[in-house]
Amino acid sequence: MDILTEILEQEDVLVLEEETTDLRELVVFNDDVNTFDHVINTLVQVCRHSQEQAEQCTMLIHYKGKCTVKLGSFTELQSMCTAIHDRGISADIV
């Protein structure tokens, strides 16, 4: 194995480690204020969920108290979390 191949393999491992260690969750929490339709529409618009996916997440939020609605880096999830807050829905990145 030549030195260039070894360096490229090491870079691939570093990139893979960076991607997996920075994975965060966008969690939406239940409340007694927002309607099912409002939460569903928010997940479709903000998180780009399908209608069915948004409905399923909303049911989990209602019955379990919270649901992870998106995975990604903190940077990717930050604007989505803000947009969800702007619609009056409680969410956090964990």
Rank of each mutant, 00 (worst) to 15 (best):
F29M: 06
L23V: 04
V27Y: 01
T42F: 10
A54N: 12
E55Q: 13
R87P: 01
T42M: 11
T68I: 08
N34V: 13
Q45S: 15
L23P: 00
N30T: 10
L43Q: 10
T75D: 12
I61Q: 08
T35E: 11
L43H: 11
D31V: 06
L26I: 13
D31M: 06
D37S: 15
I84M: 06
T35F: 09
I84W: 05
H38A: 13
Q56S: 06
T75N: 01
H38V: 09
F36C: 02
R24E: 05
Q78G: 00
E55C: 02
H49C: 11
E52Y: 14
S73G: 12
E76I: 00
Q10N: 11
Q56H: 11
A54F: 12
V28D: 03
V33D: 01
E17C: 03
A54H: 12
L26V: 09
L77N: 02
G65C: 06
G88M: 07
T21K: 14
Q78N: 06
S79M: 01
C81H: 05
T75F: 06
S79Q: 13
S79Y: 06
T35A: 07
S73T: 15
H38Y: 01
M80C: 07
C81T: 01
Q53R: 14
C67H: 03
Q78F: 14
V27T: 15
L23C: 02
V15I: 15
V69K: 03
D37I: 13
E52V: 13
E25S: 14
Y63E: 11
V33P: 02
S79I: 02
I84S: 03
L43K: 10
F74N: 07
N41R: 15
R87G: 00
V46W: 05
D12I: 09
L16T: 07
Q45M: 08
Y63V: 00
V44S: 04
R48H: 14
K70A: 15
E18W: 01
E25Y: 12
Q78H: 10
D32S: 15
T82D: 01
E11W: 12
V13F: 07
T82R: 01
Q45V: 07
G72V: 06
I89Q: 00
V28M: 06
H49K: 12
Q56L: 09
G72E: 05
T42D: 09
V27G: 03
D12N: 14
L77T: 03
K70Y: 04
I61R: 10
N41D: 14
Q53F: 08
E18P: 00
K64T: 11
E25R: 12
G72T: 01
Y63K: 04
S50T: 15
Q56A: 04
T42R: 02
F74G: 01
T75W: 03
T42H: 06
V33N: 03
I89P: 00
T58C: 15
E55D: 09
C47Y: 12
Q51I: 14
L43I: 09
T20Y: 10
L16S: 13
E52C: 07
D32P: 03
T82L: 08
V28Y: 04
D32H: 09
L23N: 00
H38P: 02
